[in-house]
Design a protein around this nucleic acid. Structure first.
Length: 247
DNA sequence: AGTTTATCCTGTAAGC
DNA sequence: TGCTTACAGGATAAAC
């Protein structure tokens, strides 16, 4: 934050796919100062000094790191920005589901970013609000919680955890849930995210996600249902059953 | 309009 | 041992 991106290199076309071309991303970022650093749901948002906005998403396997230029470039490094202090911001993303983009105001308004619902961590709605946004929707509650226009920031792992904690079946039609049922669901969001953040996030066995310092997060051990099919429920001992809600 | 499905991609694990 | 296949899932466009 506050640094100037003195040179920018996009190494993989897919990483730049939200813009017209890799060259466009490079040109728009080159020489710009990063004014702030924010987040809405899973989108990283950094306003620049010329009115453009740097937007990035980690996708499934994306990871940002800060490194000295002398350090080896890891495999699948698809974006490198050298800062005015000599350090580099690097984006490693093996599966290329993530992206780095630079948008003007109009483009920003035309991105999924503009349609995001309230942030799950910073701006969680209360039960009446959520009830209103789910009213008239018949999709399974799990699908609706994964819908970033309802609440922004929840993915497959945490939705499973939240629903289990709240005692709500993933296939329950979202529009039929009363405020009394949404209350524990929302409380579950708070608890699940607090625990996850407190323990440094969920690093799976593939080590795809790591903390900025390279350590693995410890949240995997706190998960009650995700990835535990066949294992006994910690509450009642019943083996966890696997079910695909949205393929 | 809301909902579902296909698509993108590659490291890892499981199956043969 | 080496090859093939299935699986993982973010957002989004297209189909239903």
């Amino acid at each position: 934050m506050g640094r100037v991106l003195t040179s920018v290199e996009v190494g993989h076309p897919r990483t730049a796919r939200r813009n017209a071309s890799p060259a466009e991303v490079e040109t728009r970022l080159q020489g710009r100062r990063v004014e702030a650093m924010g987040r809405h749901g899973k989108f990283l948002i950094a306003p620049l000094d010329d009115g453009y906005t740097l937007v990035a998403h980690l996708g499934m396997s994306g990871r940002f790191s800060i490194a000295e230029p002398s350090e080896d470039l890891p495999a699948h490094t698809h974006f490198v920005a050298t800062l005015d202090d000599g350090r580099q911001i690097r984006f490693v993303d093996p599966r290329t589901f993530g992206f780095v983009a630079a948008f003007d105001e109009d483009e920003l308004a035309d991105t999924g970013l503009a349609r995001l619902g309230p942030d799950a961590w910073e701006d969680l709605p209360d039960a009446p609000e959520l009830r209103r946004s789910l009213r008239a929707r018949r999709a399974p509650i799990k699908a609706l919680l994964l819908d970033q226009t309802v609440i922004a920031g929840l993915g497959n792992i945490y939705v499973d955890e939240v629903l289990h904690r709240a005692g709500i079946h993933p296939l329950s039609p979202g529009g039929e849930l009363t405020e009394e049922r949404l209350e524990p669901l929302l409380a579950g969001v708070g608890v699940v995210l607090s625990v996850a953040i407190e323990s440094g996030g969920t690093t799976l066995d593939d080590l795809g996600y790591l903390l900025p310092d390279g350590r693995a997060g410890e949240n995997l051990g706190h998960l009650a249902v995700y990835g535990r099919q066949g294992d006994p429920c910690r509450e009642c001992g019943t083996p966890i059953e696997r079910m695909v809600v949205r393929a």
